[in-house]
Design a protein around this nucleic acid. Structure first.
Length: 410
RNA sequence: GGUGAGGUGGCUGAGUGGUCGAAAGCAGCGCUUUGCUAAAGCGCCGUACUCCAAAAGGGUACCGAGGGUUCGAAUCCCUCCCUCACCGCCA
């Protein structure tokens, strides 16, 4: 969520920066709403002040046993107007907040211009790109690692069932990544709830705009978390953290649930786009001064997974037009899948600056002042696509030749 | 699911209709005194929004959330959420 004061004071520069992401709906309505709200509020506060003063006077006179009928009539005479102004002010405030919640974040000054994914610059590449490879579905079938037909039978298309060595490999990868991030990289392991309240989804930015992408449990009004980013970033919502406790570094394994509405027909085969998948997520809460350094470190921590597994990958930076809703700057990590002859996104490392912190009222105490934290997250990494790359890279002579760091986990 | 007890400022904890944004204590900040430390005394010490061109300084709201009663609600009534305890059920 953007600071309304920023829009009020410098609407043109905000407009320009938002436009770099692509077409934006005008936010003139927000400014109008803001003006209206403040005018209503000023009037309401005057009347409330009057009422408060007179009521106090009534109390004093009553204690002296004096007549107060005239004063009581006076207050009654404008109590209807107070009620009306109160209602209008609340409505106006809600409308303003709702509009603000639907506005995306401002891209950081360093973000490259561009309108879509084709204009994302490659920042670096690592490892050797293997030539050719067999499709992971073929490999999985030979080794009995997947049963997609039966998964579809019980849950529909877009669901995965790992079997035998496949299930064991999935589990091994989760443990391998969690151990790396907690023991070597110093993240605090979190095992959060998978179902979250609406407020948490608003906090990280999935709602109110992207409700059709989320699975909802009507009873109890809960949502299935589409990423551990939601429960983990929201852990400290509505708190004021001490500056010394920052940065907070947390790592969590969770399943992730996504309806993938609107992507019907895209990559529907295999593991590449599914409704439920496992992921190890990295989340940081930092001060504004350190968040961009922490973004570089977080990205490196995620990359380390692929390096240890010996998988070829590249890091790209998202151009302004490809940036996610809440992000100010994002690096995507894409692993090479030889059987697909394509790079697959396995991590998206983003700095949200104070965009999420504002929504969830997450602050820290800095020399007596309360300031909004910065929040970051990135996968470290998403499982199914890593699974694809691993199979297609490591399959040799009818068997998987797994990288050494993973062997003790299987 | 049932019953009971609760939710007040960073913390502890008073306050059951009026002068309460809220006693007191602790913690924190500043000053004074005693050669340091310690101790004592005094003062300051919530958040959000808003008014004023800005600062200074005002104002309004906030005692879990929302509604109601009232001239006036932390205080009375209703609904909900959460915490704790015990019982039942259950992986």
């Amino acid at each position: 969520m953007l600071d309304i004061r920023l829009l009020r004071e410098d609407p043109e520069s905000v407009k320009t920066r938002l436009a770099s992401r692509g077409p934006v709906e005008s936010f003139d309505g927000i400014l109008e709403c803001d003006r209206e709200r403040r005018a209503l509020e000023t009037r309401l506060q005057q009347l409330n002040g009057d009422r408060k003063r007179i009521s106090k006077e009534i109390g004093q006179r009553k204690s002296r046993g004096e007549e107060t009928g005239a004063l009581e009539d006076e207050v009654r005479s404008f109590s209807d107007e107070i009620a009306k102004l109160d209602r209008l002010t609340v409505e106006s405030g809600e409308r303003q907040r709702d509009l603000l919640l639907r506005l995306p974040n401002l891209p950081h000054a360093s973000v490259p211009a561009g309108s879509d994914a084709s204009q994302n610059p490659v920042i670096r590449e690592w490892g050797v790109k293997p030539a050719g490879g067999i499709d992971h579905l073929e490999i999985a079938a030979r080794l009995g690692m997947l049963d997609l037909d039966r998964a579809a039978k019980i849950s529909g298309s877009g669901f995965v069932c790992f079997t035998g060595a496949g299930a064991a490999l999935e589990r091994a990868l989760i443990n391998f990544m969690l151990d790396l991030h907690t023991r070597t990289h110093g993240y605090l392991e979190i095992s959060p709830p998978f179902l979250v309240r609406r407020d948490a989804m608003i906090g990280t930015g999935q709602l109110p705009k992207f409700e059709e992408d989320m699975y909802a449990v009507e009873e109890g009004a809960l949502f299935l978390a589409p990423t551990a980013e939601v429960p983990v970033t929201n852990l400290h919502r509505e708190e004021i953290l001490s500056a010394e406790s920052l940065p907070k570094k947390m790592a969590a394994y969770t399943p992730c649930f996504r309806r993938e509405a609107g992507s019907a027909g895209r990559e529907t085969r295999g593991l590449i786009r599914v409704h439920q998948f496992d992921k190890v997520e990295l989340v940081k809460i930092t001060t504004p001064e350190t968040s961009y350094d922490e973004l570089e470190k977080l990205t490196a921590d995620a990359e380390q997974v692929l390096r240890l597994l010996g998988l070829h990958y590249r890091v790209i930076e998202l151009c302004a037009g490809d940036l996610g809703f809440g992000s100010a700057k994002t690096y995507d990590i894409e692993v090479w899948a030889p059987g697909q002859n394509a790079y697959l996104e396995v991590s998206s490392c983003s700095n949200f600056e104070d965009f999420q912190a504002r929504r969830m009222n997450l602050r820290f105490k800095d020399a007596g002042k309360n300031r909004f934290c910065h929040t970051l997250n990135g996968s470290g990494t998403a499982l199914p696509r890593l699974f694809v790359a691993l199979l297609e890279t490591c399959y040799k002579d009818g068997a998987l030749d797994l990288p050494a760091p993973l062997r003790k986990y299987v």
